[in-house]
């Protein structure tokens, strides 16, 4: 409970110092990254696989969304399509898992991420290539979600729905299969669980969530370029879930708050420090790194380590 009170206080302080728009824009980004993070929790935390290319699934969703709304399709069905494209990406990413060991499979997801980034660059007639793509605000049934408040509401609503859905999934037959395969693959197979199939479905579900997050992210940023969905984003998502708690669904939310809002808090603090108003190269990055290291040492299981 005290964590949520602290969070509300931090939000109020952020709105006071950086403006209400900034606070809600942060909430919107927290929601989208938490959605993608939730997909990764499902893959890494629940089913016990390592994905080094989750950012690419987000990219597929983002570009699918941009392309569809560019064709005049309403935002909501476009988001469904973005999630589907992300799921297909997850399906493709999981295929090498049938033949490769853990590390080899992780490397194949990394390779897929590189292929996706390169593909987005090369398919310039569709993606705009390196010149990028301007994305209009999200419009749902004629309602234009251009304000940060509307964006935050949309992000957090979809995140809430996804948390509920994944919570149900975790306790379903499939969720039990994921956890059994994660804890002991041989024992799970011995009791009749098709571990490979279950793991493939984890990638599909995780990819769908990343695709959905990418679709929203495209609108909140308003501009897409392939390098935004390169390896740094995939590693940022991994940091997000490990900081938040890789086996906890709400860990995705807490990790996302750290990834999005901590640098903002450091930037605001820096502005208030005499002598640092004009920025110091790398200061914010170093401060962020130190805090994340401290968090990992202090809470090795993540901020929300509970979960089964």
């Amino acid at each position: 409970m005290i964590q949520y009170v602290a969070l509300a206080a931090a939000f109020a302080l952020s709105a006071l110092v950086g403006g209400v728009d900034n606070a809600f824009a942060q909430a919107a980004f927290v929601g989208t990254l938490a959605l993608a993070g939730l997909g990764l929790v499902l893959i890494v935390g629940l089913s016990g696989q390592l994905s080094l290319g989750h950012g690419a699934m987000m990219g597929l969703g983002a570009y699918a969304q941009a392309g569809l709304v560019g064709m005049g399709i309403d935002g909501l069905p476009a988001l469904a399509a973005a999630a589907t494209v992300g799921a297909l990406g997850g399906l493709v990413a999981s295929i090498p898992g049938r033949r490769l060991g853990d590390l080899g499979f992780a490397m194949s997801t990394l390779a897929l991420a590189l292929v996706v980034e390169e593909g987005l660059l090369r398919l310039a007639p569709l993606t705009g290539g390196a010149a990028g793509l301007v994305v209009p605000p999200l419009t749902v049934a004629g309602w234009r979600l251009a304000s940060p408040v509307a964006q935050a509401v949309a992000s957090l609503t979809l995140l809430g729905a996804a948390l509920w859905l994944v919570g149900r999934l975790r306790n379903s037959r499939l969720g039990r299969a994921w956890r059994a395969g994660r804890d002991d693959e041989v024992a799970a197979a011995a009791v009749g669980i098709d571990v490979r199939h279950a793991r493939l479905l984890a990638f599909v579900c995780g990819g769908a969530l990343a695709g959905l997050a990418g679709g929203l992210h495209a609108h909140w940023l308003g501009f897409l370029s392939p390098e935004q969905f390169g390896l740094p984003l995939s590693f940022e998502l991994l940091v997000l879930v490990f900081v938040g708690g890789v086996r906890s669904l709400s860990g995705a939310l807490w990790g996302s708050i750290v990834i999005v809002s901590l640098p903002q808090a450091i930037a605001m603090l820096r502005q208030a420090l005499p002598g640092f108003e004009l920025g110091a190269a790398g200061l914010e990055l170093v401060a962020f790194g130190l805090i994340v290291v401290a968090l990992v040492i202090w809470r090795p299981g993540g901020l929300r380590p509970e979960g089964r």
């Binding site: 110092v17 950086g18 403006g19 209400v20 728009d21 900034n22 824009a25 942060q26 980004f29 940060p148 909140w220 940023l221 308003g222 501009f223 935004q228 999005v260 640098p263 903002q264 930037a267 605001m268």
Partner: peptide, 15 residues
């Protein structure tokens, strides 16, 4: 990072 830039721009505009 455009995400950080968007948040910075909003802070600079409003704050």
């Amino acid at each position: 990072d455009p995400k950080k830039a968007v948040l910075a721009a909003r802070r600079l505009l409003a704050g």
